[in-house]
Design a protein around this nucleic acid. Structure first.
Lengths: 206, 206
DNA sequence: TAAATTAAAGAACGATCGTTCGGATAATTA
DNA sequence: TAATTATCCGAACGATCGTTCTTTAATTTA
């Protein structure tokens, strides 16, 4: 017999495996376009067996979102506690987000497609997580601009600039191909250079 | 009796009105999350009556996409024929895209959510339109960078930079609020400044 | 006016949806 | 080993899905 420790490409079992495979399918077909029977098929389980891991389809969507934002936030909090310059912090934020984004493309695709389909309590929890993550980004961008220009711009200006940065990063799933566009580090470096110095600084020192 | 020329807020009738109201609903609920009965309700028509304007739901999605990309492309071709500097062209591209985006938010939301649900022939037509629009953008960005730096960067570098620009613009629906973030012109100016000079040039002359 | 075309609607079709239920099997605990 | 718990499944439920059929009203053309 084979050693049962040598399993296929998805070593994990249980809920995490279900969330991953569900995110893969939902990223391609959308939440409403993915049926519980589809999910049962890709997870290798029966339709009714899935309901031992979540109470309904909506909760599955919530769990995918919650796990993702919690991971992103904990990684961010980690380097926010370190003693870094504003520029280093901005660089870390971008590398962190882009790297996580690219290694969890399906999950991020689901996370960025909105949470219109959840009940009030769940969407409120996600809104809180998203707001917290957005505010960390705004603080980092605001501190960087203050450090570079000496000016404290009003909140709505900083907010808009931060959303432009997130736009560059979150649009990745619409075009990225490793063969043509390089590694996650290449993309993150490009976004950092473009956001801080504009598009004409391809090989300038950072 | 009322003059029948004074109609409600949606003066248009027929297919265009249906496409607009359908895009509004699909932008909120997604393609699969919006039922033909929902569409019949918001358009004030009967379920079966809708099928006189398109042969099935998939074609409706195609028509929304085709109309949007065709409009965007024709506006772009218009200013590409004018005698403008590379910088002016880039500015026009951004203002054009952002203005159209903001006045057709629902439609653009549907257009940016992918066309996985269409048959081969239709998705091929849309892919061609998208490719043409992307190539115009890449030409404008490439010309601008060449004009500013004198360097002809390889295609994949220009392509990546252009996608970052489109990311800033296409992410608008995720955050934009007129009250907090200003008009379309304000946003377009901000994107132009950020893309050309970086985030620390809030009030520099363009 | 008569004929022809377009626009609209009610009712129903088979298919698929998310969910539930009772019972079976595997794993853990006592 | 016996009892308990966690997993899992086949079958079925009512609801809703996209689509079609048949008929009727409105508009345009001849």
């Amino acid at each position: 017999m084979n050693n049962q420790a040598t399993i296929d490409k998805s070593p994990q079992n249980g809920l995490d495996e279900i969330l991953n495979k569900s995110a893969d399918l939902m990223a391609r077909l959308g939440y409403h376009g993915t049926s519980m029977r589809d999910l049962a098929h890709v997870t290798g389980r029966s339709l009714s067996g899935l309901y031992h891991y979540f109470s309904n389809k909506e909760e599955l969507l919530f769990l995918i979102n919650q796990r993702g934002f919690t991971s992103l936030l904990s990684m961010t909090h980690e380097f926010m506690e370190q003693d870094l310059t504003p520029k280093e912090r901005l660089s870390r934020l971008i590398h962190n987000h882009v790297t996580y984004f690219m290694s969890h493309l399906s999950e991020m695709r689901v996370m960025t497609s909105g949470s219109m389909d959840m009940n009030d309590q769940r969407s409120k929890i996600l809104r809180t997580l998203k707001k917290e993550y957005a505010e960390v980004g705004q603080k980092i961008v605001g501190d960087y601009i203050k450090d570079q220009t000496g000016i404290n711009y009003p909140h709505n200006i900083i907010s808009r600039k931060t959303y432009l940065l997130y736009g560059m990063m979150n649009w990745i799933f619409g075009w990225y191909s490793a063969k043509e566009h390089g590694s996650a580090i290449d993309v993150a470096d490009d976004i950092f250079r473009t956001f801080t110095k504009g598009c004409c600084n391809e090989h300038s020192k950072i």
